[in-house]
Design a protein around this nucleic acid. Structure first.
Lengths: 139, 139
DNA sequence: GTTCATGCAAATCGTTTGCACAATG
DNA sequence: CATTGTGCAAACGATTTGCATGAAC
């Protein structure tokens, strides 16, 4: 959700920065899915007065450029559900509406999806993202 | 993540409260997956000086009682990923580690999982939750 | 030299918590 | 009456933003 920083919706002509370069390099060097804070701690050794603002701004730019992705799910706030039985969700990317799906979760549904050996799967979630009927009609 | 409020890990002997009753009723009356804030706005008409603290505390209790569930995904902070190609994740419920899964996302994997008609699916996510190898070994 | 990126600090947002008082069992 | 639940306000943690200065192009 980082705002474009230019007038007419044109593509932003980003300049290079040592900080952003390092952030990308660091992220590419690990598969541990770091947090912003991890990056901050790591980079503070190279840039003693690095600020969190810079880290977050650069993450936003890198995401916008498609060079990295955020593992975030929908909104930042919790949605509640009185339907306790496990079920899957459809999330509308336009209006944010969440709809329950009919299929009952079942291990068989996962088919050949399995974790590395030694891992124990207790539950799973599936989310479909796209446009709900309302938003498909009125784009 | 609401803390039990009693000594020896015994089950908490919750008392009843008008506010909590209404929260549950309201949640059961809709399938729109409300937010805490929606509940607050709604209930303020009945309880003019309801507080957010009360809403959140009761949500916590209801979740603990298994009467409702939170549609929240893993941690509250974003995890980053330089692997841009879509892929599924395994999340360890004990240590929070996130691991990439091997299978390449593919519509076929969804099998008979489909949204209501009129909906357009653009992408999907699958997350497995459980214990990673490390945590399985050392519980 | 114009514009973007940075550091700093303050602000924002959803959520949590400490406290004194009211309500429950 | 022993505790839990409430309202209030302050605290919290992750993230965002306004502003003056420094770096890219």
């Amino acid at each position: 959700m980082s705002a474009p920083r230019q007038k007419h919706g044109k593509k932003a002509p980003y300049r290079r920065s040592r900080q952003r370069d390092r952030i990308l390099t660091l992220l590419r060097s690990t598969d541990s899915h770091p947090t912003a804070n991890w990056l901050y701690a790591r980079l503070r050794k190279e840039f003693p007065d690095l600020s969190m603002g810079t880290v977050y701004r650069n993450i936003g730019i890198l995401v916008e450029q498609g060079l990295i992705s955020r593992i975030a799910f929908g909104s930042t706030f919790d949605r509640l559900d009185a339907k306790v039985a496990p079920h899957y969700h459809f999330i509308c990317e336009q209006c944010g509406a969440i709809h329950d799906l009919d299929v009952a979760p079942n291990k068989d549904i996962l088919g050949r999806i399995s974790p590395p050996k030694g891992f124990e799967v207790r539950r799973h979630e599936i989310e479909l993202y796209g446009l709900c009927a309302k938003c498909t009609a009125r784009p």
